[in-house]
Measured scan of single mutants.
Amino acid sequence: HNLTITQGKLFFHYNPKLCLSEIHKMEEVSGTKGRQERNDIALKTNGDQASCENELLKFSYIRTSFDKILLRWEPYWPPDFRDLLGFMLFYKEAPYQNVTEFDGQDACGSNSWTVVDIDPPLRSNDPKSQNHPGWLMRGLKPWTQYAIFVKTLVTFSDERRTYGAKSDIIYVQTDATNPSVPLDPISVSNSSSQIILKWKPPSDPNGNITHYLVFWERQAEDSELFELDYCLKGLKLPSRTWSPPFESEDSQKHNQSEYEDSAGECCSCPKTDSQILKELEESSFRKTFEDYLHNVVFVPRKTSSGTGAEDPRPSRKRRSLGDVGNVTVAVPTVAAFPNTSSTSVPTSPEEHRPFEKVVNKESLVISGLRHFTGYRIELQACNQDTPEERCSVAAYVSARTMPEAKADDIVGPVTHEIFENNVVHLMWQEPKEPNGLIVLYEVSYRRYGDEELHLCVSRKHFALERGCRLRGLSPGNYSVRIRATSLAGNGSWTEPTYFYVTDYLDVPSNIA
Rank of each mutant, 00 (worst) to 15 (best):
E389T: 11
P434A: 08
E442C: 12
N295P: 15
S367V: 14
K357H: 03
K287M: 10
D409W: 11
V358F: 15
V365A: 13
P346K: 07
R471W: 05
R319P: 08
F337P: 11
V329T: 09
S341D: 13
L369D: 01
V414S: 02
G412F: 11
A463S: 09
P496Y: 13
K278N: 12
V424E: 03
K271P: 02
E310V: 13
A309I: 14
G325M: 14
L455M: 08
V393E: 10
A330V: 12
W216A: 05
Q256N: 13
R319L: 03
S367I: 13
N435C: 11
P413G: 13
G234C: 11
R466P: 07
K357Q: 06
E351L: 13
G489I: 04
I482G: 00
P354Q: 13
A336L: 09
E452A: 12
D222H: 03
D222F: 12
A407L: 09
L369M: 10
E265W: 12
N295D: 03
T307R: 14
Y504G: 08
K317Y: 06
V501L: 06
N255W: 14
T340I: 13
S367K: 14
L235V: 10
M402A: 11
N208M: 08
I482S: 01
F355L: 10
A405L: 12
Y375F: 13
P354C: 10
F499D: 00
H454N: 01
P300L: 06
T340C: 09
S304V: 13
E430H: 10
F289R: 07
N421L: 08
P300D: 15
C269D: 03
E356F: 06
A463P: 05
V397W: 11
E351F: 04
I209D: 05
S479M: 05
S262I: 15
Y498M: 11
T307L: 06
S320I: 10
T494I: 07
F337K: 06
W216G: 03
C456M: 02
G234D: 09
N477Y: 12
S251P: 12
P270V: 12
V443D: 01
E247S: 12
M427K: 13
V327Y: 07
P434E: 03
D408W: 00
Q384M: 04
T272E: 02
L473N: 03
F355G: 12
S274W: 10
F337E: 07
P434S: 08
R353L: 11
R446H: 05
Q256A: 15
F499Y: 02
E442S: 07
P314K: 13
G322N: 07
A336K: 11
T502F: 06
K406E: 08
V439M: 05
E388F: 07
S492F: 06
L321K: 12
K236Q: 05
P349M: 04
D250R: 11
E282Q: 15
Q256S: 03
K460T: 13
N255E: 08
S283P: 06
T494S: 06
V443R: 00
G325I: 08
D323W: 15
N435R: 01
R318H: 08
A395N: 05
F298A: 15
N383W: 05
P475A: 10
L293C: 03
L487Y: 11
Y498A: 10
R447P: 06
N383V: 10
Q275I: 05
A484E: 09
L213H: 05
K233A: 13
Q275M: 08
S479P: 00
L225M: 07
G264C: 04
N206F: 14
S315N: 13
L426I: 02
S320P: 08
S367E: 14
S305W: 03
V359K: 07
T497M: 09
D273V: 04
D323F: 15
P244A: 09
V297K: 10
L369T: 11
P434D: 01
S492Y: 02
P300C: 03
F355I: 11
S257N: 04
S398T: 15
N255M: 12
A335E: 10
R447Q: 08
L225E: 06
K460N: 09
E260R: 14
E224M: 15
T401M: 02
T340S: 14
P312H: 08
V414L: 07
A395K: 15
E362H: 07
S320M: 05
E290L: 08
E282Y: 15
D222G: 05
L228F: 13
H454W: 04
P403H: 05
P332Q: 13
Y292I: 02
W242V: 11
S262N: 02
L379P: 01
K278V: 12
R218G: 11
V359H: 15
A407I: 04
M427F: 13
D385M: 12
P245W: 11
V297M: 10
T347H: 07
A405T: 04
V334I: 15
I438G: 01
V329Q: 03
S458Q: 03
T272M: 07
G306Y: 05
S283E: 12
F246L: 11
Y500W: 11
I418F: 09
I366P: 00
V345R: 12
D408F: 00
S398V: 13
A309Q: 10
T485K: 14
Q380K: 03
P245F: 14
E290N: 11
H294T: 02
K317S: 12
W216H: 06
R316M: 06
S486L: 00
R319F: 09
P300K: 05
P431A: 04
P403E: 06
G412D: 10
K432Q: 03
I377S: 03
H416D: 00
V214G: 15
C266T: 07
V443K: 00
T386K: 08
K278E: 05
G322A: 15
H454G: 13
Q384E: 14
N435F: 01
S344W: 11
Y478I: 01
F499E: 01
P475Q: 07
S342Q: 03
Y478T: 01
S248C: 05
D229M: 15
G325L: 04
N295R: 14
E279D: 09
S257D: 05
R447N: 04
S320G: 15
N339E: 10
L437F: 02
S243D: 07
N383P: 02
F298I: 09
E420D: 10
P245H: 09
L213P: 02
Y445G: 15
T241S: 05
S248F: 14
F499T: 01
R218V: 02
P496M: 02
F355E: 09
L440Q: 15
V480M: 09
G374S: 06
S458D: 08
F298M: 12
L228P: 13
E442Y: 15
L369H: 00
T303C: 08
N339T: 07
T288W: 15
R218S: 06
V296E: 06
L321G: 10
H254K: 15
S262R: 09
S274K: 08
A463L: 12
C468H: 10
V457A: 04
T272W: 10
C267V: 10
E362A: 10
P403L: 10
E465L: 07
S474R: 04
F289Q: 07
D250P: 13
S304Q: 14
G306L: 06
E404P: 03
R316S: 11
P403V: 05
Y441R: 01
I209V: 08
S458E: 07
I482W: 01
H254S: 15
A381G: 03
S398D: 08
G374W: 07
E388L: 11
F226P: 11
W428G: 00
V327P: 10
P496I: 06
M427D: 07
G489W: 13
